[in-house]
């Protein structure tokens, strides 16, 4: 084991420029993956915010009694998907409206009486904020006595839903492409570092080193590359996000869990990349040698 660590250490410091290039390439590919993750996190954030604003309002008939209101609130609360309800009286509605209009509130003086109907504000739980569910809930509410109309911005919801679906699809496709590209790049980069030490592997193989002995230093090295790569790219991403968020607020960096996953993913990428590439390289070196020898013999004989 001591030797394996020594070999790893030697390999790491002997080919400095090669290692820097390798770490650089891995950093870049993981950085792109990180950009994608941040993009996704922010996209999800935007969607959640937008969906958060989805509210359902049930407008009540003007002649409604307080008892009826209580009754209605109870009935609405039992509908699946409804979280809370809140009664807004005519007066309250006017107050809110005035607040919304701010300095233009004097516009309301054109009305002699309060034109706003009483209403019940309905908070819908997140999972039910789809066009189908909202429609279903609103239709259930509409048939209750005392309800004038139910509004939840149907058109806007449909548009949002369509957009979310498209964005999500693009995001998933992009994600798959990026993950495969990163694996491919990391795999090939590590492969190059392994192949650059082909001679050494060949000698070890002939001397009688076990495969574990030959492979382990490269695997440890690859894992370290993966870790460093993801670590570096995390730092770069963090700086980038800090910079951007000064211009566009509300940009969020990965949360702690995502960050941990990200480092883990990069390290895992290095580990898997190096296991695959070193195994393949050893196999390749052996095959090349077999073929080479026979080809050489053939060439000499025919000469």
């Amino acid at each position: 084991m001591i030797y394996i660590l020594q070999e790893t250490f030697k390999g790491f410091f002997k080919n400095k420029s090669m290692n820097l290039i390798t770490i650089g390439i891995i950093t870049i590919s993981i950085f792109i993956f990180g950009l994608f993750i941040i993009g996704t996190v922010n996209l999800l954030n935007v969607i959640t915010n937008a969906e958060d604003r989805v509210k359902m309002v049930a407008y009540l008939k003007e002649d409604i009694t307080e008892e009826q209101i209580k009754n209605l609130e109870n009935k609405i609360s039992t509908i699946l998907g409804v979280q809370t309800t809140e009664y807004i009286s005519k007066e309250q509605a006017l107050e809110d409206f005035k607040k919304d209009l701010k300095e233009n509130s004097n516009l309301l003086s054109a009305f002699e009486t309060n034109p706003l109907p009483p209403s019940i504000k309905i908070n819908i739980s997140m999972a039910f904020k789809t066009p189908e569910n909202l429609k279903e809930i609103s239709e259930k509410i509409k048939i209750f006595d005392g309800i004038d109309d139910v509004d939840y911005g149907a058109e806007w919801i449909n548009e949002l839903d369509r957009m979310v679906k498209i964005l999500f699809l693009i995001d998933v496709i992009l994600g798959i492409i990026i993950v495969f590209a990163s694996i491919f790049i990391v795999f090939n980069t590590i492969r190059l570092t392994v192949l650059s030490r082909k001679e050494q592997i060949d000698i070890m193989d002939i001397i009688g080193a076990t495969e574990t002995y030959i492979e382990t230093p490269y695997i440890i090295e690859g894992t370290i590359y993966g870790f460093f790569g993801s670590f570096l790219s995390t730092i770069i991403l963090y700086i980038l996000v800090e910079f951007i968020s000064k211009k566009i607020p509300n940009i969020i960096f990965m949360n702690k869990n995502a960050l941990f996953f990200f480092l883990f993913f990069g390290t895992l990428l290095g580990l898997i990349g190096s296991i695959l590439s070193v195994k393949q390289c050893i196999f390749e070196i052996r095959e090349i040698k077999k073929d080479d020898n026979l080809k050489r013999t053939l060439k000499k004989r025919s000469a």
Binding site: N293, R296, T297, L298, K299, K300, R301, S302
Partner: peptide, 12 residues
């Protein structure tokens, strides 16, 4: 044997 006789193959 001459080059190409198969010596290396045999050793390998």
């Amino acid at each position: 044997g001459r080059s190409g006789a198969g010596k290396s193959t045999l050793l390998k």
